[in-house]
Amino acid sequence: MDAIVEMIDVAKEFGRKQAVRSVSLAIARGSAVALLGPNGAGKTTSIAMMLGLLRPTRGQVRLFGGDPGSPRQHVRLGVMLQSVSVPDRLTVAETINLFRGFYPAPLPTERLLSAAGLKDDARTMANRLSGGKMRRLQFALAMAGDPDALFLDEPTVGMDVTSRRQFWDELRGFIASGKTLLLTTHDLQEADMVADRVIVMNEGTIVADAPPERIKMEFGGRQISFAAGAGVDLAQLDRLPYVLSVHTAGRKVTLRTTDSDAVLRRLIQGEWDISDIQVTGAGLEDAFVRLTTEMGEHT
């Protein structure tokens, strides 16, 4: 079994709170996996268990076939965690060199600086970097040991558009060389850019595990919202074709649909008494919650 990570019926409880209920998964070498889900879905807790930072309450976790808590298993691994700030009184280059010292065969400092786009900041004190550059430095630290696998927890939070693009370019290069990537995000577009497999988590369990194309189909919906006049029978909206769900708040109606054009045409031609029409792409965070509940019902 050539799995980088294996989780077998894993659960994690904090006191009475169940962060992870029952998760079983295997991540194959060379795959690029995105772990998606709303906040509090159990993504970060799962990654923490894969890294040996947390011990599962129940079940088994293996990293490179061994104990994830053992430092030996971390030699071929690069990691970005959330909310980490670097020590004071070290420059960017010194911080990178500190990390290079932890690994048997590190990448050259110059290579890491340019991968992270920090060449001009090499002599800046690392803890004075802006949020986005700090994140890039952490990417350089993750790459320091020339890892076979990268685990990135919400890697692009705080990065600007240019940084992001460079970051994804680097990551694509990394995957193309046959290495393994696991990242958590709540941004579907990010997942779509690099992942060949998307695992959706909600309330501590896996609710979907499929290639991104399939997940996108489940999601492809748009939202139409409008104010309905007094004469509109709200119950009829549900029966319109292409409508997935109807949400009403007073006279304010929000429809989720697979074909917004068709629904709009019908609404207009049917001379429905509606005003204030807006069409938007479904919010990803919301859509995820909806997707997860729907898929939970289907399976």
């Binding site: 930072l53 030996r72 980490v84 990390f99």
Partner: peptide, 11 residues
């Protein structure tokens, strides 16, 4: 700052 936790993911 989470640094100690981060170091635990290294060798």
């Amino acid at each position: 700052s989470g640094w100690v936790r981060f170091l635990r993911t290294t060798p």
